[in-house]
């Protein structure tokens, strides 16, 4: 997994609540058997007009959002389906960090598995970031620092965020979670030997 320590990049604000994973990546793009190539389909139904051209109304298509790598959005981002295609699409598009007042559970975990940092800030802080992004001319930049757990800009905005130490270490070091768990093989095997409940198809 790609490590995440610090990142500075252009911000795009998507001031909507409850953006579900069906919007992030619609179902017709879930038939690929690879982890890559989902970027062009990100936010497909919002991003493109019926004739296939970019929808100029959509936030990601604004000239100031070109090359954005930090998404600032509303609460409960990533709700709905567990599809990991959603963080794959966001990452493939070029996003490295997502900032919101809250995320859906499964989506939050899926981001952490892909080096895409989900940052939870206070609602007021997110509102301020959206205000600054929308007021800027020619693009707004943020620095997201997982080492210090801070989000800051060059005009005085600074906020701290929390992340549990297990996930933070995984992201900082770009660790392979399966490899880490496999180191516990002896413990897993002992657990299997000692448990009283029979396994699913071992029931006699």
């Amino acid at each position: 997994m790609q490590a995440f320590k610090t990142h500075s990049g252009r911000v795009v604000a998507l001031p909507r609540a409850d953006v579900d994973t069906d919007q992030i990546i619609p179902k017709q793009f879930l038939k690929r058997i690879e982890r890559t190539g989902f970027g062009p389909s990100l936010f497909f139904d919002w991003r493109y007009r019926p004739d296939g051209l970019p929808n100029p109304e959509f936030e990601l298509n604004h000239p100031d959002a070109a090359g954005a790598s930090v998404l600032v959005t509303g609460p409960n981002f990533g709700c709905g389906s567990s599809r990991e295609h959603a963080p794959w699409a966001l990452h493939d598009y070029g996003f490295r960090a997502l900032i919101a007042p809250s995320f859906a559970d499964i989506f939050y975990g899926n981001c952490c598995q892909n080096g895409l940092l989900p940052v939870v800030l206070q609602e007021g802080e997110v509102a301020e970031l959206i205000r600054r992004a929308e007021a800027s001319v020619g693009g707004y930049e943020l620095n997201v620092d997982l080492i210090e757990r801070t989000v800051s800009d060059t005009a005085g905005f600074a906020a701290r965020f929390q992340m549990d130490s297990y996930r933070r270490e995984m992201l900082l070091r770009g660790l392979d979670e399966i490899g880490r768990t496999l180191e516990l093989e002896a413990g897993i095997a002992a657990f299997e030997r000692h448990r009283s409940e029979p396994a699913v198809r071992g029931v006699s």
């Binding site: 567990s82 990991e84 975990g109 899926n110 598995q113 979670e177 768990t181 496999l182 897993i188």
Partner: peptide, 19 residues
């Protein structure tokens, strides 16, 4: 019983466990 992502599916296949 709960839903998981594809990376976690891989984790369960390899380890029979979930974090």
């Amino acid at each position: 019983a709960f839903g998981i992502g594809t990376s976690e599916v891989e984790h369960v296949l390899a380890t029979q466990c979930i974090v």
